[in-house]
Design a protein around this nucleic acid. Sequence first.
DNA 1: GCGACAG
DNA 2: ATCTTGTCGC
Length: 240
Amino acid sequence: MDLPEIPADWLTPPDLATAARVQRELAGRVVPHGPDGPVRTVAGVDVSQFGRDPSGRVFAAVVLLDAATRETLEVGTAMRVAPIPYVPGFLGFREVPALLAAFQALSRPPDLVLVDGHGISHPRGLGIAAHLGVLLDLPAIGVAKSILVGAPAGEPGPGRGSRVPLVWQGRTIATVLRSKDRVAPLYVSTGHRIDGETAVDWTLRLGGRYRLPEPTRRAHEAANAFRRAWGSGAAEGSDD
DNA sequence: GCGACAG
DNA sequence: ATCTTGTCGC
């Protein structure tokens, strides 16, 4: 698929102060409602990396699947060197470039994107799911495995589908959701062009058997497979 | 100043 | 995120 025009500073700011400014700017562009059109295809994205690899290489994967049958339609991958090391609150600047390249490898854009990480439940309202969603201008949901900011308003029941709000500074920024019976909850938030309730609906609709919804789960496997394949082929001279 | 801190 | 054996529970 083709990518929208994206200012270089939005991808690689010179320093964290500038990065924070960019995040506030992009956070203002997040559309917290939708999707407007039908959702027939969904994409799951994730990145993998070598342990304490000083090179900063990130291996991204995007898996496109049929929203109704869950059949995998396409898999796109890409490797990039992260501009910055991991800093809580700035994950997007590290992983988005590689993810965008992976999307470029797809033949068509998805109707919805599920991202491994937070959406608006972020200090400046721009977690990686919102960051990627705004740059691609596609509906996106943040599905995180742990909290970045905020506190659960109580504890969700033990059954799949039980939920409680994640509150921060007096505002509900995400939903603490039990995606499977008796497993640690997920933190689902708006990424872009979707409301919180619909984000939770889709997360449940695309999951069931495992803690993570199918799109994100498959992307995690794909990114890992891609990294391992790259690792055992780099010695032969292949690059990117 | 002291902790907290997505992946 | 990644490194790893055994172990607890359905």
